[in-house]
Design a protein around this nucleic acid. Structure first.
Lengths: 208, 208
DNA sequence: ACCTCTATTGGACATACGCGCAATAAGAGT
DNA sequence: ACTCTTATTGCGCGTATGTCCAATAGAGGT
């Protein structure tokens, strides 16, 4: 196999890991799977990562951080706090439609068994929560929102969203995808003192 | 080891599997672990179960069904709907304190990859939701609660509870255990038109 | 007592895993 | 051309897994 620069090879390992994990799940992705996906030897992977735990953590970090920064920049296109929240939910919806939510389920289940993956999962989860917190705070400063405890509200809304999305991913059909967003948006409207229906619901996309 | 009747031995295999799984997690529980826990040989397990998958599915089913029926009977000790809801949350809290929540995380993550486990997980999850639904309906009949859509309310409350508990299990320390129950109970109070604080909060148990 | 059924044993077998390491080869700087 | 660095190989080690099977032992019926 062609000799690559360390950073290019590292990126390719992460990309290959994500391709495998999308099919087999994060927890069931092995060193040999990744090596076969790249068409290289398995030893190469340990030349760049000290352990498989680190590979999985880096891969999860890559995917989740991309989703996070994408959401962050989408929110940046709105100047008002309510508009930012609408963008937040629209971005979240796009992510779990793509099937990326399964990776979060894998990460949460493995968090207590793989230290590096657990630390990454925790950090990114908190980052998502902080996205909501700062928006609520800016809404308070605008005077359009009121909230006693933005930290707690953010955890409640994010956990509601996560819990509902988990049903969507694990038990397809028990609830509707469009309900998930609507319910979560209604919940945060009530939490921050917005009139129900203020936040713009994303169009309900039809799938085959 | 004493020779047992097939049904007794089957039950003991399941019980031993749960004892191990509480510590190592469902996904990481092996045939040898279970055999060692029982003090028997590993071959014995395959005399009763065709595969390890079947053992895990049976164990998960047993544990989740036991938690469910335990909660159901605890709720039966109250005649009023609000009392039943208080019992529901108290029972839920006891379950996730025991560490059984990790098992649900494993089940949700694997649901889309293991059909048997997925079907069991779905069925029991719906049963938990229906526990809330029937209580809300009986509260409506009593005249103590009002709810436009008990099915939707039940999914929202259960998902909030699951989402928050997941943070508790996967990322210890990011939120407080006592907050989880309090937030979920406050949410359902608002959903069914009970005054905030009506439901009895379980005492906050201290751990070492 | 014997016999039959089967619960139970203990280990073999093939496979898979993470990880480490000596050997190889490719590219960059001189 | 020559050297030095290091990306890459290919395989081996130790361990763990699920599954299978011939052999053993214990209990109940006759």
């Amino acid at each position: 196999m062609p000799r690559l620069s360390p950073s290019a090879r590292r990126d390719e390992i992460i990309a290959a890991t994500l391709r495998v994990a999308a099919v087999k799940g994060l927890a069931n992705t092995t060193v040999r799977d990744v090596a076969a996906e790249m068409g290289t030897s398995s030893g190469l992977i340990h030349h760049y990562f000290a352990s498989m735990d680190d590979v999985l953590a880096a891969a999860f970090e890559e995917a989740a951080a991309a989703d996070l920064s994408g959401t962050e920049s989408a929110m940046g296109s709105c100047s008002d706090a309510a508009g930012k929240l609408s963008k937040f939910f629209a971005a979240y919806a796009r992510i779990d439609e793509y099937g990326a939510f399964q990776m979060w389920l894998d990460a949460w289940a493995e968090a207590s068994r793989r230290p590096a993956l657990g630390a990454t999962s925790r950090r990114l989860n908190v980052a998502w929560q902080q996205l909501i917190v700062t928006t609520i705070v800016s809404g308070s400063n605008e005077g359009t929102m009121t909230c006693d405890d933005p930290e707690a509200t953010a955890w409640r809304v994010l956990s509601l969203l996560d819990g509902l999305s988990m049903q969507l991913a694990a038990h397809p059909g028990v609830i509707e995808r469009s309900d998930v967003l609507d319910w979560a948006m209604t919940a945060i409207e009530a939490e921050v003192g917005l009139a129900s229906g203020t936040l713009q619901r994303p169009p309900d996309e039809q799938h085959s």
